[in-house]
Design a protein around this nucleic acid. Structure first.
Lengths: 180, 180
DNA sequence: GAAAATAAGTCAATATGGCTGACGTAAACG
DNA sequence: CGTTTACGTCAGCCATATTGACTTATTTTC
């Protein structure tokens, strides 16, 4: 898949490339990390895109199925808060998932205004497949990186999150894990 | 900014959460990494989004300015290959950047069909600011992670890229670095 | 018990950033 | 000279997001 036709890029000089190579950055300029993260993320989501496209879904559907699977019984408002999108944006995606039998809604016990969200068997299976795809990518990466890399990566990724939201994300993750 | 209303999420059980906690994954299920990468990338691009929005630009403009700045004199076809989008998609974005004086085009010396792309001073400054923003995030993260984390992260990110494109990405990066 | 607040859904309009297909122009190649 | 290449552009479509206004059902509050 030789897509990037690097062979034709010129090698000529031109200013403003470096700048932060001086202090303790282990000889790795941030701009390299920026680009690697860009390409890594693209391939990471690309795994799922293929499978989703076959079902007529997009990334928005992926996010909904993923988080509902991880937090069964979450409210619509919770989902909006996690995804940081608007009610209107969620609307179509959620409707499609419900109509096609991937997500179920149930009125809340104590507050019947709430429509609690659950994955239907179809949705659970889809979520499982999507996680499996991306799990495989992580497994391959850590296999190449050697022992300890997984823990290091976990710390690194958490540190990349805005400090203000980091605690919430960690709470979100541990709550989801607690649900087994 | 307590956006994720975690406090209201139920703690009740429900199947299909774990599955890969058995073998050598250092007690860190991949699903955690999946979510951390999702949130990390969102905040990572969020840095830039704010600045871009003030200029009436989006992420597409960001990518163009970034890569043209890193590879001055690259051809339109090269840019398309890197971004993996179509000529038509690039069209509007590139025109806006040229019209607003961020990008310059020059006919190729030996092949005058080529429109070689260069950042104008305005574009170079914008690229610099965008890199600076994201550099700050990386710096903060590695400061929290301790020594060696930068090199570990570099290896990890590279390993997350599709094996078939990894070499090309590395070549792309080293060519850009060579231009200083 | 009436009024206010809340949870969710919906309609309409708009923006962004992708896509495909078709076509045009200029220049290079053979 | 004819073909291919590099680039641009027109037209239309789709997915995902936005804002603002409004409805419905229900709960909370006074």
């Amino acid at each position: 898949m030789a897509d990037v036709n690097v062979s034709t890029l010129p090698i000529s000089p031109k200013g403003a490339g470096k700048a932060d190579d001086s202090q303790g950055n282990e000889g790795i300029p941030a701009v390299e990390l920026i680009e690697l993260l860009f390409f890594a993320y693209r391939d990471f989501v690309g795994d799922a895109d293929e499978l989703l496209a076959r079902l007529g879904f997009g990334r928005a559907h992926h996010r909904v199925v993923h988080f509902v699977n991880r937090h069964p019984g979450m409210r619509v408002a919770d989902l909006l808060a996690v995804l940081k999108i608007t009610k209107q944006s969620l609307g179509r995606v959620l409707r499609e998932l419900v109509d096609n039998g991937y997500i179920q809604q149930k009125a809340g016990d104590t507050d019947r205004r709430e429509r609690l969200l659950y994955v239907a068997p179809k949705g659970e299976e889809l979520a499982r497949q999507l996680v499996a795809l991306q799990t495989r990518r992580f497994a391959r990466a850590f296999n190449e990186c050697g022992p300890g890399a997984r823990a290091e990566a976990r710390k690194f990724l958490a540190s990349m999150i805005d400090p203000e939201s980091r605690e919430e994300v960690e709470r979100l993750i541990s709550r989801a894990n607690a649900k087994k």
